[in-house]
Design a protein around this nucleic acid. Structure first.
Lengths: 144, 144
DNA sequence: AAAATGCTTACTATTTAAGTAAGCATTAGT
DNA sequence: ACTAATGCTTACTTAAATAGTAAGCATTTT
């Protein structure tokens, strides 16, 4: 039914949790998984993938933890998405048209190509900094 | 990995096959499934769903078949999508925020909400008429 | 009555996603 | 050096969604 991958969802939660604290601050994954309700073993793998993609820095040992490797305004949803699932590809047809059984005149390629482009554009436009900022505005409203 | 549902993909193929012929013309599902490479039993169910959604008219018996129930320019990808899978919903969070374990301050809702809106906008904008027209332009180019 | 079509239901197989368990690797503090 | 706190890795299990198959029913034209 075309749902968001839960791992990607969790990855965004992690990045937003980091962005919610002063830049450069280090959080433990334990803190994050309790706050964001993510099962341990699952989260650890996500952390590892974010780290491989150089979106975060990780430090083992006591006082270890993770921190952002770039300012939140510089990290897009596309960066996170690709760190977890690789490039967005909503139909095989779009990657290798030559393998499409309907060949170069596949009537559907245009259709999904347009949708994918719209999605890509959105993922590139939205940054963690923006989302974090919006979230803080909302939280301020609910204070009263 | 967030792929397009194959049934929706097939449904678009059906609608495009119909739009490729003069408006009002009736095609047999047999013709369509041979042209578009869709397994029979699978296609028949898709046809039935398109019919329930009133996007096509169906006629049994010899000289039966299916035809569009509206001009191609009036049929959007959203119409087809919803006929097959129901409303676009890329995360449960967006439908029922109250059930979200992170409640009203779910940091991820904005994120996927924006993406979903971008997708919805695209699906509403693109019509079968447009796609069919684009396809014919391409086919004309390949003639030489 | 027969043949050509669309329609329905029940089932099976395959793939993907989600989650669990157990233990390893690195580092700070003592 | 030892211990404890952290991140990391691998292998496995379970559950759900997707894709496809089979068999036969229902409706209409000839």
């Amino acid at each position: 039914m075309m749902r968001i991958n839960r791992r990607t969802d969790y990855a965004v939660r992690v990045m937003l949790a980091l962005a919610d604290h002063p830049y450069g601050e280090r959080l433990s994954t334990r803190f994050i998984r309790e706050k964001m309700l993510v099962p341990r073993a699952f989260l650890e793998r996500i952390i590892a993938e974010l780290s491989k993609a150089r979106l975060i820095l990780t430090f083992p040992g006591p006082n270890g933890g993770i921190q952002l490797n770039a300012r939140p305004e510089e990290i897009t949803l596309r960066n996170i998405w690709e760190a977890i699932e690789g490039p967005l590809l909503i139909s095989d047809c779009l990657q290798s048209p030559e393998e499409c059984p309907l060949h170069e005149n596949c009537p559907v390629r245009d259709c999904w190509g347009k949708l994918q482009k719209a999605m890509q554009r959105e993922l590139e436009t939205v940054t963690i900094g923006y989302l974090s900022h919006e979230l803080k505005k909302k939280q301020a409203l609910h204070m009263d």
